[in-house]
């Protein structure tokens, strides 16, 4: 990791009434890396994603993207700058076909319907659901929906992609395909932050891991060290990992 970080999170906090979902989180993300964001349920991972993507305002702190302060910027403008995201619970456009869903993202970069359609077909092929292009989005299976979420975000041509539990509920074979896909996306030059619970998936894939616990940054480092960290084992991984 060299050069200016693509994303800088400085002392970011988020309160929902009396509840502290993120507490003074500071974090840099290097260009081109795959960063794993892990932590127990309710640790504040999705909340942090929402603040990076502009879906929720921060309570305190600043977020910079490519050196530019985006803390007060709405989600639409952040997408234009190059931040793409998926939702933990897929949010497809259910009156549209799969292809049309992806085209919505494509219109971020072009207003020519023909060009947007051609690019969307390519993107669907890239994520492996090209055969479902004309199916209504409601008819997709859960793993297909997660691929659609990725295709839609990729259609906006992001530099930074936030993946919130895109592998949850996949069979081992599907998860393997998912891992390959995420590598392929990174190889195209996209920086990735991914939230994932299954350690067997995250650890081999990510360049660096960050652990959130009760809204605070608990540990950060290369994956092999993080899983051996005593604090992380106690707070999240459990004794099963102590021997590893």
């Amino acid at each position: 990791m060299s050069g200016e970080p693509i994303l800088e999170i400085r002392n970011v906090s988020k309160h929902f009434g009396g509840l502290t979902a993120n507490d003074d989180v500071s974090l840099n993300v290097g260009r081109g890396e795959i960063l794993g964001l892990i932590g127990p349920n309710g640790a504040g991972k999705s909340t942090l994603f929402n603040m990076i993507a502009g879906a929720l305002p921060v309570t305190a702190g600043t977020i910079r993207f490519n050196g530019r302060d985006i803390t007060a910027m709405p989600g639409t403008a952040r997408c234009a700058l190059g931040i793409g995201r998926t939702f933990q619970v897929p949010r497809s456009f259910d009156t549209m076909t799969v292809l049309e869903n992806v085209m919505v993202g494509g219109f971020m970069r072009s207003s020519s319907t023909g060009a947007v359609r051609r690019a969307a077909i390519e993107t669907l092929d890239f994520v492996g659901i090209g055969g479902r292009a004309d199916a209504p989005a409601v008819e997709l299976t859960p793993p297909e929906k997660r691929r659609l979420e990725m295709a839609r975000a990729l259609a906006t041509r992001p530099q930074l992609l936030l993946l919130d539990e895109v592998m949850t509920g996949l069979t081992p074979a599907e998860a393997k395909a998912g891992v390959d896909l995420i590598r392929k996306v990174r190889d195209q030059g996209v920086t990735i932050i991914m939230v994932e619970h299954v350690m067997e998936i995250v650890m081999p894939l990510v360049d660096r891991a960050v652990v959130l616990h009760l809204g605070r940054l608990l540990a950060e480092g290369n994956p092999a060290d993080v899983v051996r960290d005593d604090k992380v084992i106690t707070a999240y991984l459990g004794e099963r990992h102590r021997a590893a």
């Binding site: 993507a53 502009g54 879906a55 709405p74 989600g75 639409t76 997408c79 234009a80 793409g84 995201r85 939702f87 949010r91 497809s92 456009f93 259910d94 009156t95 549209m96 049309e100 085209m103 919505v104 993202g105 219109f107 971020m108 207003s111 319907t113 947007v116 839609r152 975000a153 259609a155 906006t156």
Partner: peptide, 25 residues
């Protein structure tokens, strides 16, 4: 079949997702 048409339907179906995809809601 234009950008507006796609944006409108996206706004109808899911405004949060639309915003994350660059739609001016």
């Amino acid at each position: 079949d234009s950008r507006w048409g796609f944006w409108w339907r996206a706004v109808k179906d899911n405004p949060e997702a639309a915003e994350s995809l660059g739609v001016e809601v």
